[in-house]
């Protein structure tokens, strides 16, 4: 099913693009999955260093005219802080 195309950018360029049914769970995220960051990663995603960037992730959603309207696209970005030495 092609619903829409989602692209995410940072200051350096495109780092993630997908249709919302690629490698993801269609019917939402369970509390357990919200807790486990590993579940957020997809095959097409690569780690993105964002130090010294603008502080924003920009996104574009383009409807591909296949989904009954209206619908909602939910995006979660998993951000990692600087590790603290123990």
């Amino acid at each position: 099913m092609k619903t829409c195309e989602v692209k995410l950018y940072n200051a350096r360029g495109l780092f993630y693009a997908c249709q919302p049914t690629e490698g993801i769970i269609k019917d939402g995220i369970t509390p357990k999955e919200r807790t486990l960051g590993e579940h957020l990663e997809t095959p097409r995603f690569t780690l993105l260093e964002v130090d010294n960037d603008t502080g924003y992730i920009l996104g574009i959603v383009k409807d591909l005219r296949t989904e009954p309207l209206p619908y909602k696209i939910r995006v979660w970005v998993l951000a990692e802080y600087e590790p603290e030495k123990l």
Binding site: K26, E41, L48, V50, E80
Partner: peptide, 14 residues
């Protein structure tokens, strides 16, 4: 924030 380690996109029919 140092880096972004994952992204997830979900369709939610209304």
């Amino acid at each position: 924030v140092r880096r972004v380690t994952g992204a997830m996109v979900v369709l939610d029919t209304m």
